[in-house]
Amino acid sequence: MDDRTPENRWFHLCTTDDLAGPNAFVTTRVGAVPLVAQTIKGRVVAFRNVCTHRFAVIHGEPSGCGPLRCPYHGWSFDADGVPVGLPFNPTDFQLEAEGRRRLALHPASLARCGRLVFVRVALDGPSLEEELGTDLFARLAALSENFPHRGDALEPAEDWERIEVANLRLHLAPGGAALVLHSAAPPGADRRFSRTATRHPAIADAELPV
């Protein structure tokens, strides 16, 4: 029986495709802690999705594209979580470099398994590979790499192989025709943080249209 708290466990968040664009973000909640993974100037980073100024949630949507900017007072943060855009700083806050660093966002753990992206609230603890086990980690990585293309939604049938790990359920069609990923919302999160995607294998060059 796993007696660890949700904050100490890895949860599947999304795929690398969901964070491929500039300022792309995906959010979730683990227990009472909102989390965000975001691409900032080519880096994929993860933080608690809470502004360190007045503790407002920064990104309110499950996913989207936009700067890591709090909607409350407009503070924006860089890839290190440091506030770099502070409206009215000279008159209202007078924060120099050290003061800004003290108000950096709280980081969260981020890990990849092939195209799969996982997050964890706690910074310390077993790696994702250690938590999953080497064999399962390798299989998930290979499956995610072998199904690089998004496709129309498919409903898994009874004869599909089923793999469950953390909050992630994978359904593999016979013959490797398709892969359906379903991520349940972590404990404490509502259903809008659950995600389902159908992915298809790479097309061999000989099959590509001329």
Rank of each mutant, 00 (worst) to 15 (best):
Ala122Ile: 03
Phe118Ile: 04
Ala111Trp: 03
Gly42Val: 03
Val26Asn: 04
Ala173Met: 03
Ala142Asp: 14
Thr198Phe: 01
Gly74Asp: 06
Ala20Gly: 04
Pro186Thr: 01
Pro22His: 02
His73Trp: 06
Phe137Ile: 05
Asn146Asp: 13
Arg48Leu: 13
Leu86Arg: 07
Ser183Arg: 14
Val210Lys: 15
Cys51Arg: 07
Val36Gly: 02
Val30Asp: 01
Phe55Cys: 14
Ala204Met: 12
Pro186Phe: 05
Leu208Glu: 12
Arg100Tyr: 07
Leu168Asp: 02
Arg115Glu: 12
Val44Leu: 10
Arg112Asp: 13
Gly99Cys: 03
Asp17Phe: 10
Trp160Gly: 01
Val44Trp: 09
Asp159Tyr: 09
Pro90Ser: 08
Lys41Asp: 15
Val36Pro: 01
Pro174Cys: 10
Thr198Trp: 03
Ala104Asn: 01
Gly114Ile: 09
Phe193Trp: 11
Val44Pro: 04
Pro186Tyr: 03
Arg139Cys: 00
Thr196Val: 10
Gly81Lys: 05
Leu170Gln: 04
Cys51Tyr: 04
Ser127Lys: 02
Pro148Ser: 05
His106Asn: 13
His200Ser: 11
Ser127Pro: 10
Gly176His: 09
Gly114Cys: 08
Ala202Phe: 07
Trp160Arg: 05
Gly31His: 01
Pro209Ala: 05
Cys65Gly: 13
Ala32Gln: 14
Thr91Cys: 12
Arg54Thr: 09
Met1Gln: 14
Ile40Asn: 02
Phe93Trp: 13
Glu164Thr: 12
Leu95Met: 12
Phe147Pro: 04
Leu170Pro: 08
Leu179Gln: 00
Leu19Thr: 04
Thr196Phe: 03
Pro22Ala: 07
Asp159Arg: 12
Pro67Ala: 13
Ala97Val: 14
Ile40Trp: 03
Ile163Gly: 01
Ala32Pro: 11
Gly175Val: 06
Leu143Ser: 10
His149Asp: 11
Val30Ile: 15
Pro174Tyr: 10
